[in-house]
Design a protein around this nucleic acid. Structure first.
Lengths: 129, 129
DNA sequence: ATTGTTGTACGAATATCTTCGTAAACAAAT
DNA sequence: ATTTGTTTACGAAGATATTCGTACAACAAT
């Protein structure tokens, strides 16, 4: 399986693309520059490199190119999670889960969803025993 | 608050130190080289740099130095989680939790622990309403 | 004492990431 | 047609991370 390792800056860009969908460099840059301090050409260059690396696709049919994420959020999440669980949480996923639950408030709804999820997993485990 | 940003390789070393406790370069290297391919002096150099950065402490009283992690696993976990939730999971901790639960088998005990944790959090939320 | 082994220190090469200046293409406005 | 603003392309500098060769010190075994 192909190992994708986006850098920190690349993840920021992917994050925006995942949320907003296909975007121009200008759009990405405007959003990023709210929280970060970098020139326009920096963002441009990054996205060009990401295109070379095949992290992004782009449509060059008009003068202003439109970029799209070429890797799915899900897959990227899973990959980064796996590595993190492995190196930082000593291999224990539930350790990570509890740490995450502890320090971020989630709405009651979200907690309820997680609870249902737990139940489903436990049920599945019983069946496969 | 001081932002710590260990690199990938540094995290690997920290991971071993957190698990095994104080260790020599040789011990760390032997473990890492099971899954990674790097020379001994590379590991040594990395740990020396980490000591300069104050990521590691070391005892130089004997010829063979003994290194210890200078930052806690908990704090590092939290910091990395926060950033990850922010950039990769669009700010949703529960999104991360479900993704993590989905693709890693946890024992029934662990799941039970998480369930209790959930209950505690929900109770707390009610009280603070 | 000589040899072999294991360790640290140091410097430098290499690789990778990040940043930005500059030039050229293009379109809209004057 | 010239100016102005927006965009891409490119190259190169700067910053950071990774890798390893070499030298030297400590020590054990012969």
């Amino acid at each position: 399986m192909k190992q994708i390792r986006p850098t920190e800056s690349e993840l920021e860009i992917l994050g925006v693309l995942w949320e907003k969908g296909p975007s121009t460099v200008r759009e990405i840059h405007d959003i990023l520059s709210q929280t970060k301090d970098a020139g326009y050409t920096t963002t441009l260059k990054l996205m060009q490199i990401m295109h070379e690396k095949e992290l992004l696709q782009r449509d060059t049919s008009s003068k202003t190119h439109v970029y799209t994420a070429a890797i799915s959020q899900q897959k990227t999440q899973q990959q980064l999670l796996d590595k993190m669980i492995d190196t930082v949480f000593g291999g224990s996923a539930s350790q990570l889960v509890m740490q995450a639950l502890g320090h971020h408030q989630s709405s009651g709804e979200e907690l309820e969803k997680i609870r249902q999820y737990l139940t489903a997993i436990e049920k599945e485990q019983k069946e496969n025993r």
